[in-house]
Amino acid sequence: MQLQILLLLPMAFLLSPGAQAGEYGWQWEEIIGGWVAKPHSRPYMAYLKRKTCKGEETCGGFLVQEDFVLTAAHCADGDITVLLGAHNVRRDEETQQQVSVRRKIPHPRYNETSFENDLMLLQLAELAELTDAVYTIPLPQAGRTVDPGSVCSVAGWGRTSLNSMRTSNILHEVDLEVMSDKTCQEDGLLQHYYKPLKMMCVGDPAEDKGDSGGPLVCDRTAQGIVSFGKRNGSPPRVFTRVSGYIPWIKKTMRGLNSPGSHAESPASLH
């Protein structure tokens, strides 16, 4: 039997007081029906530590180039430090690399009310060293969509229960189903879902699963970033559709004179 876990990932993967807006909430780190991930089987995962006026908060993200991490724009607050190559974020593992952030580049048209354009690039202060435990994940082709019914996955660290503030130090993962646009468009509490070319509807309404901050991985490609959901945490949830932003992502990275990206990933990549 699969371990039934509700993981509220820190940013997206850690639900903090005040993280919700109106009827909606950013599901920081939230995974139900999840299980412990094989150590370093997702070498693209990034754990973001944010020092804010409220204290230390966390988010998830993913490495798309040696000096760039992609995450959600609603994680822009505070001074961010990126931890790569981590399985247990509370242990000093030999695989870990801690890197400061040189620039935060939220999408210029991010709207914190409608959640439109909820993505952000983080330029790292130094290049990540690519290893078996730290590696980039490919991005999709511009405009490429994922068919409803496709089974993808999310991963992260965070709370193990909605009724507890205790978080999981170890990376967990879970499979999620891509839903039709109609599923989110007809959900009264997801009225901001109105641009399907820029958003994805994810999660079976019959099951309470979700995540935010890290990538929605479909066929070893980062197709989505968890953006928002209903305040009570029930599905479906809305992900930013990465393929709708490929021109902006590539233009931004080129403009900052970054080195070439690595499109291939190791066999261990999910």
Rank of each mutant, 00 (worst) to 15 (best):
Q98Y: 11
P10A: 10
K38H: 06
Q65P: 00
A37E: 06
K54Y: 14
V36S: 10
L189Y: 13
S16R: 12
P196S: 15
G25S: 11
P108Q: 15
S161P: 05
T252D: 11
S227R: 14
T71A: 03
E116Y: 15
I137A: 15
C53K: 15
E126T: 05
G149R: 11
A125R: 02
A21P: 01
V226S: 12
W35I: 00
P108R: 10
E94G: 01
M199F: 08
L130D: 07
K51D: 14
E66M: 06
G255E: 03
Q98S: 09
M165E: 10
E126A: 10
V146A: 12
E264A: 06
A86S: 08
A206F: 05
S258N: 02
N257Y: 03
R91H: 11
A86D: 04
K198H: 13
S180F: 13
S268M: 01
D175V: 00
P215S: 13
E207P: 03
P196W: 15
Y24G: 07
K251A: 06
L130E: 09
A125Y: 02
N111H: 05
C218F: 09
Q97R: 12
W26K: 07
K104T: 02
D187W: 12
A21T: 08
G158W: 03
G156N: 11
M11F: 01
G78Q: 03
A222F: 09
L14F: 03
P215R: 11
S265D: 05
D211V: 00
L171H: 12
A125V: 00
S212F: 09
G78A: 02
F68Q: 01
H87C: 07
P236F: 15
K209I: 00
R103K: 12
K51A: 15
L130Y: 12
L7N: 04
V64D: 07
Q20Y: 05
I5P: 13
S268D: 01
E29R: 04
E94T: 00
P39V: 08
E177N: 05
R237M: 09
G33M: 02
P43V: 09
D118A: 04
K182Q: 09
L48C: 02
P43A: 14
F239E: 02
P43N: 14
I31K: 10
K250A: 00
S150E: 15
V64N: 05
D147I: 03
S100W: 07
V242N: 06
L269A: 10
S261N: 06
S100G: 12
E56T: 07
K198Q: 12
Y44I: 04
A125C: 04
S180W: 14
V101N: 13
V178L: 12
I80H: 07
V99F: 11
S261F: 03
Q223M: 08
E23P: 03
E264D: 06
G55L: 10
